[in-house]
Simulated assay, not measured.
Amino acid sequence: VAVFGAGGVGLAALQAARIAGASRIVAVDVSPRKEELARRAGATDYVVASENTAREIRALTDKQGVDVAIECVGRATTIRTAWESTRRGGRTTVVGIGGKDQQVTFNALELFHWGRTLSGCVYGNSDPARDLPVLAAHVREGRLDLGALVTERITLDGIPAAFDNMIAGRGGRALVVF
């Protein structure tokens, strides 16, 4: 599994990959400072995003690519890189919310040749009646650590600084406490 973006959503996806039993979990982020957070969430490997990210991921997976890529950023270049990091017949899921200006293109031959599946995901495509009890059990039994997603606790006055941190690629999730 490769998870693109090591913010709050990406850290949760890393934990989910670990819980699901993925043998290799590659975290990708633009910030080298997020490596320790990603590894604590379950990443076995960490790649700092660059023009060579897909090639680096393929090198980590015997040149095959990952079975599943989860894009948590919502940028066209990240979606494209996640797609290119996925093995033939694998699945790329876009969780990140991009703008209308974020256009991703594919040619007809590569769609045929790679046979990958590309899909979007809204709120984990969950069924709350089925999935919330399972998530709660993971939390109770210590497999899903929600506290690890929170890297700072702030008051309402701290919201602007939390957005600055998010834009600068620092930390995971800020929790507003009042």
Rank of each mutant, 00 (worst) to 15 (best):
V3G: 07
G5E: 12
G7W: 09
V9Q: 11
G10S: 10
G10E: 06
G10N: 10
A13E: 04
L14C: 03
A17L: 06
A17G: 11
I19C: 10
I19H: 09
S23C: 04
V26F: 07
A27C: 09
V28P: 07
V30S: 12
A38F: 04
R39N: 08
R39G: 06
G42F: 04
G42S: 04
G42I: 02
G42C: 03
A43L: 07
T44K: 08
D45A: 03
V47N: 07
T53Q: 05
A54L: 03
A59Q: 15
T61L: 11
D62K: 11
G65A: 10
V66L: 07
V68F: 12
I70N: 00
C72H: 03
R75M: 12
I79A: 12
T81A: 14
W83E: 00
W83S: 00
T86W: 01
T86E: 05
R87Y: 02
R88K: 13
G89W: 02
G90W: 06
V94Q: 02
V95S: 01
V95G: 02
G98A: 14
K100C: 00
D101V: 05
A108D: 09
A108R: 10
L111A: 12
L111G: 12
F112Y: 13
W114P: 00
T117R: 12
Y123L: 14
N125R: 08
P128R: 09
A129R: 15
A129T: 11
L132E: 05
P133M: 06
A137G: 15
H138D: 12
H138I: 01
V139H: 08
R140I: 07
E141R: 14
G142I: 08
L146H: 08
L146D: 09
G147N: 15
T151W: 08
T151P: 08
R153K: 14
T155K: 13
T155C: 02
I159N: 06
P160V: 04
A161F: 00
A168P: 00
G169M: 04
G171L: 06
R173T: 10
L175I: 06
L175R: 10
V176A: 09
V177P: 00
V177T: 15
V177W: 03
